[in-house]
């Protein structure tokens, strides 16, 4: 286990990024914990999956989350744009259920640039937008030798990067010290 500075966090400011895969929520919470301030989480009202603050306490204080409930994706995008542009929040997470076009993606980028905040879109796998700065694929991995109370080992793969190289990292969230650790692929 090495406690080196993370090679990828924080994500570049004033841009929007994308994350997909089963570990996307963990990625979003790790990022929010890294930024350490209030953030907005935009979701659509119909979605049956809801955040469980008692689980989020492992990452950060759930009182830092503001939830925006919207009726459809168009409204989600409008809210995200407004929130990004205001600059009142360093991070805006938007849960998308359908692919967004280049126009919408670009508008989010411009809004993030104006507000100097980070936008993070949680997207279904393979539905990324070309406008995104980076795209991450986060997959949980099984580590048979770890203690059962460790958090999940995650394989974070950078599958798109507009201004840099791609890469793969194995990470594990340290619940006690609330920080992200880089680990080897075997999870030890």
């Amino acid at each position: 286990m090495m406690r080196a500075a993370l090679p990828f966090f924080p994500l570049s400011k004033g841009r929007t990024h994308e994350v997909c895969g089963a570990g996307a929520y963990g990625f979003a919470f790790s990022l929010a914990a890294h930024l350490g301030e209030n953030f907005l989480w935009i979701r659509e009202t119909w979605e049956p999956t809801q955040l469980n603050p008692n689980g989020i306490t492992a990452f950060l204080d759930p009182s830092k989350i503001l939830l925006g409930h919207t009726k459809d994706q168009l409204e989600s995008l409008a809210v995200a744009e407004e929130a990004l542009r205001s600059g009142a929040l360093p991070l805006v997470v938007i849960a998308l259920s359908k692919p967004i076009g280049l126009t919408e993606g670009r508008r989010l980028q411009l809004a993030a640039r104006d507000g100097k905040s980070v936008g993070l879109a949680i997207i279904p796998e393979g539905m990324g937008s070309n406008a995104a700065e980076t795209r991450w694929q986060c997959r949980p991995a099984f580590s048979p030798h770890a203690s059962p109370y460790d958090s999940t080992l995650n394989r974070w793969e950078l599958i798109k990067n507009k201004s840099g190289t791609l890469g793969v990292w194995h990470v594990r969230w340290d619940t006690a010290s609330r920080r992200l650790d880089l680990v080897s692929a075997s999870g030890e």
């Binding site: 009182s63 989350i65 939830l67 925006g68 409008a78 809210v79 205001s86």
Partner: peptide, 29 residues
């Protein structure tokens, strides 16, 4: 700035739709 943002978002999606999570006293998840 945050209050103003909440107001502005409230004019779009309704002030009730911007929520925060508060602890409640129950074992039921």
């Amino acid at each position: 700035k945050l209050d103003d943002l909440v107001t502005r978002l409230g004019t779009r999606i309704g002030l009730e739709n911007i929520t925060r999570l508060l602890p409640a006293d129950s074992h039921i998840p």
